[in-house]
Each structure stands twice: as C-alpha cells, then as structure tokens.
C-alpha cells in the first residue's frame, strides 16, 4: 500500500514536468493545428542554458539563500530565452508557411528539431566545467543537486517526500494556475482561446491573429524554459537527446488529454507520469514505453478526442 502511494507520488512529480511541456504542444496545436516537433528540443536547449548558468553562477557550491535567488534568476532567464527562440522560429520558419498545406510547417518543425538537437550537441561540447570540460559533447551532463533529496519524514521512514519533490510539484502548480488565470481572465488569454476555437471569427472580432500566435509561442516557450529548470533540478542529468524522449511523452500527454485542451494537457501529463511509475513497479521497467503508448492507442480507439477533449472542433 505504501509502495503504491510512493509510486503515485513519484509519478505525480514526474507528470508535472510532462504536463508543463505538453502545454506548449497543446497551445500551439490549438491555434495552428501544428504539431511543433521542435518543442521538446527547445526544452532541451533551455536545460542546457540552465546548466550553463548554474555553472557560471557557481550555484553548486553557494549557500542556501544565494541558491534560491540564483535559481529564480535562472528560471527567469531560461523562460525568456526559450520564449524568444520559440517566437523567432515561428516568425522565421512557420509564419511564411501559414497558408501552405499543413504538411509543410510540420516537416519544417522536424527540421527545426534537428537543428536544435545539433545545437545541443555543440553546446554540450563547449569547454565548460559543467559540460564535462567539453570532452564528450554527447555524454549525459550532470545537473548539480541544488535541492536536497533527503527524506523530510526522516531517514528511516517508509514513505519518502523530499524538498525536491515539493519544489517540483509546488512551483509547477503555481505556474499552471497562473496560466489558467491568464487564459480565462485576461483579454489576450481569451483572445487566444477564441482564436483556437475559430480563427476566422476571431479575426472578425478585431483580434490580430498573428499577435495571438506570437503570444502563444512566447508562452509555450516560457513554459518549456521553466520546465527545463525544474527537470534539471529533479532528474539531475541532461543530455542533448532529452528533447526527443520528453517531447514524445509530453506530446502523448497532450493527445491523451485532448490536443488543444489546456487542462487536458495537464491531466494527460499527470496520467502518463503515474502510469509510467505504476508500470515500472507492477509490470517491469522494460515495458514502460510499451505500456504508455499502448494506453495511448487504446484511448484513441475508444475516445479519439482524448480524456478532456471536446468533440472535433467546428471547421471554418
């Protein structure tokens, strides 16, 4: 019983990261019907920035309060970095293809994903101490353990809750609530939802759709940047292929929750995190991917619109 609870807790914590990345997929898809394959790799680049900054600021050996302030700065920098890159890619790559067949931006997104991966590979080879001194560009990079993972319930306790878990869950929840308030309460957020539901009508309401799209890429990117720092702090390892693996799970989460649906992405992320944990415990670690994707297939057969998805969106 305690083991089950422990696995649920681990799954929940992991799921938060998937959910944060999934939000970026789902928001862009909602507006452009574009699966932004580069999103996972954007997340990876942000994680490299996070590690670089942690190294430059010397946070690994700093004292508690400095670490807190430093990390807030790193979060901010990574969010801005990823947001700007995401928007720039939209401006330069996707926007000229706005009226092209859907396949064109999709293939371009895959191209961007490769460019990002190679940038990550290059970045990993920089002669920085945190990157292993530039010796092995592709090797996994250790992200310093800035938040203690000692058991808050005591060393011998059967259930394990660490400060690290609480930071991941707590800060992710805060960001999600803020995002929710933004899309439901703010003028731009509402315009975003309106554009996602009916871009033509949105234009006729005087909504500058290009601006809304830019804002979507900015926000999705910022979430990926935030997720990257959280991921680094939690998993403590980053590598240039992380974008692929996490992107795949996050994209699955978005589809699972109903692509284009913001709460759906969060639910999908948490479900995947939990299924992953339970599958490791009760089925076997080697079946993890098979179980996750099997679940996706089963869901798509019985509920193609996803867990929270509305029925197929009305066409213009």
């Amino acid at each position: 019983m305690l083991t089950l609870a422990q696995q649920l807790w681990i799954g929940l914590t992991n799921g938060m990261v998937f959910a944060l990345i999934a939000l970026g997929y789902t928001m862009v898809y909602g507006i452009l019907e574009l699966i932004n394959f580069a999103h996972g790799d954007l997340f990876m680049l942000a994680s490299f920035l996070a590690l670089t900054l942690v190294g430059l600021l010397g946070l690994a050996t700093a004292s508690g309060p400095v670490v807190v302030v430093g990390l807030l700065g790193v979060v901010l920098a990574c969010a801005i970095f990823a947001a700007l890159i995401n928007r720039t890619v939209d401006r330069v790559v996707y926007r000229p293809l706005r009226n092209a067949p859907k396949l064109a931006p999709l293939v371009s997104a895959i191209g961007v994903s490769f460019v990002f991966q190679n940038l990550g590979l290059f970045w990993g080879g920089l002669p920085l101490d945190v990157m292993g001194g530039g010796l092995a560009a592709a090797a996994p990079k250790s992200f310093p353990d800035l938040i203690p993972s000692t058991n808050l319930l005591g060393d011998g306790a059967a259930f394990r809750i660490t400060a690290k878990d609480l930071v991941v869950i707590g800060s992710s929840l805060c960001v999600m609530v803020a995002l929710w308030l933004f899309v439901t309460r703010s003028r731009l957020g509402k315009a975003m939802r309106a554009t996602a539901q009916n871009p033509l009508a949105a234009r006729l309401m005087g909504i500058d759709v290009d601006r809304v799209i830019s804002a979507t890429f900015l926000i999705g990117g910022a979430l990926a940047g935030f997720a990257a720092v959280i991921y680094g702090l939690y998993v403590n390892t980053i590598k240039f292929q992380d974008g692929y693996q996490n992107g795949l799970y996050a994209f699955t989460a978005a589809v699972l929750g109903g692509i284009g649906n913001i709460p759906g992405a969060v639910v999908g992320g948490l479900v995947i995190g939990i299924v992953r944990a339970l599958s490791d415990q009760y089925i076997g670690a080697q079946w993890q991917q098979a179980v996750v994707f099997g679940m996706l297939i089963a869901l798509l057969v019985f509920r193609p619109q996803g867990l929270l998805g509305a029925n197929v969106r009305e066409k213009v």
């Binding site: 690994a60 050996t61 700093a62 004292s63 508690g64 309060p65 670490v67 807190v68 990390l71 807030l72 310093p144 353990d145 800035l146 938040i147 203690p148 993972s149 000692t150 808050l152 400060a163 690290k164 609480l166 930071v167 707590g170 800060s171 805060c174």
Partner: peptide, 21 residues
C-alpha cells in the same frame, strides 16, 4: 509562495545544498 517553497527547500537540508551528493 514559490519563493518561500524554494527557500525552505534550499535551506531545509544542512548548510551545504549538495549534502545528498
């Protein structure tokens, strides 16, 4: 809340944040 959470987290362990290395 976020700041407080991070603060407790970072100061929760001993002085050295890398204590669990």
């Amino acid at each position: 809340a976020l700041a407080a959470l991070l603060l407790t987290a970072a100061c929760g362990g001993d002085k050295q944040p890398t204590v669990a290395a």
